[in-house]
Design a protein around this nucleic acid. Structure first.
Lengths: 125, 125, 125, 125
DNA sequence: GTGGTCTAGACCACT
DNA sequence: GTGGTCTAGACCACG
């Protein structure tokens, strides 16, 4: 449930961010669920607490979780109403890059859309 | 047609890679078309030739370009048959990240698929 | 009338301090009015009595409240003559920070002053 | 021009953020001006480079500056058009806190507005 | 040279 | 116990 790919070039803290986001989308983590404390997660993943802290702060900025000092970190409501234009653009750009890469590899539009459907279904299990 | 976003966090050489790929997908650059030489491109973009060189090397590795010593660099056939499993996985993972981000921002599956269609259409103009 | 934002980064005891101050400025709480006891307030807000205690201590230090042993806590006269230079400077600094932030966001001097008027009016209702 | 108040309870990185913002508002730092590199600023202020880095990253998030890897950090255009609702609200709330504090200390609305004018004028010198 | 990430370990404030 | 800040020092990627 909590694991990292140390061979991945993506920064560890980004992997943690992504890991939590996936679990939220998959419904494994629901609003107001408590996530492991920074120290716990650091031990679970075998990384420095500072690294987990950075991930949690980024998640708080993107309003995926909220923290209460002295209490811990919790999943936020995913109303998704306060998305900044900047964040939306960043995500769409990443989508564009991935789609261009897959098109250039010879995948058809339909195959890519199927991939999207697959990712969506994973989240619905 | 050739432009960079210097404020973008993505490394410049990655932006060049992405720029060429987009033009291939859009059909602006076709197989065996010659791309500007490293020096020309460096002047066009106002960057260090080393940076362009790095981009072309990456494009060669992903078989988007081939170079002929003393001749220049040319667009490769996009057969798409020699895609390394590693590259494919990387692209699919990036797709997954983007989709997860958009889902968490409250977009529906349909909206995301529409985005993919849009990106595809852009390439067909 | 008594509510906290648990997701707010500001410490809860500071939020309590601010809450009381606002009600004094708004005239809801008048000199010699009794405020809820530490225990009552803790139950009202669903927080630890220690947290309320810390807030009341800070309010006593800034002479917004006075406590009578065995009686409870009461609103002090707001003569405003015994303001410590330190406290005044702190408030002016906070004002400066907020104004700088708003200016950098593109608000004009007039818009900021309008905001101040709004805050003042809220207190007069 | 660059100095900190180590007795201040505000985190050092926030003080750096505020310092830069003030200089932008005051027109001392103009769009595309380069700010001292992280290492330089760290030496100037006598703090750890990580602390400066954190400040610069926060400034980048609020679009006060932009960084170019390998080049340095530069003041961004202050178009102020992409302000997130969240950031605006945070600044207005800070304004409200400061105004309430000053009102409770006995300052009149006019005196507070005079303060705002003073802060504005400082920026225009 | 630049900024970005990570570790180890310290101290503080809040609950 | 919790998260937040700071330091010292390391290594990497970019230009």
């Amino acid at each position: 449930m909590f694991s990292l790919d140390r061979t991945n070039r993506a920064p560890i803290y980004e992997q943690i961010v992504q890991m939590i986001k996936k679990q939220v989308v998959a419904g494994i983590l629901k609003p107001d669920d408590q996530v492991p404390s920074i120290r716990e997660m650091a031990i679970l993943l075998g990384v420095n607490p500072n690294t987990v802290s950075k991930a949690y702060q980024e998640l708080e900025r993107s309003e995926v979780l909220y923290t209460m000092k002295g209490k811990g970190a919790f999943i936020a409501e995913t109303t998704g109403k306060t998305i900044s234009e900047k964040a939306r653009l960043a995500a769409v750009n990443q989508l564009k890059e991935a789609v261009v890469d897959l098109l250039i590899m010879g995948l058809s539009k339909e195959e890519i859309i199927n991939r999207v459907e697959d990712i969506y279904k994973e989240g619905q299990i």
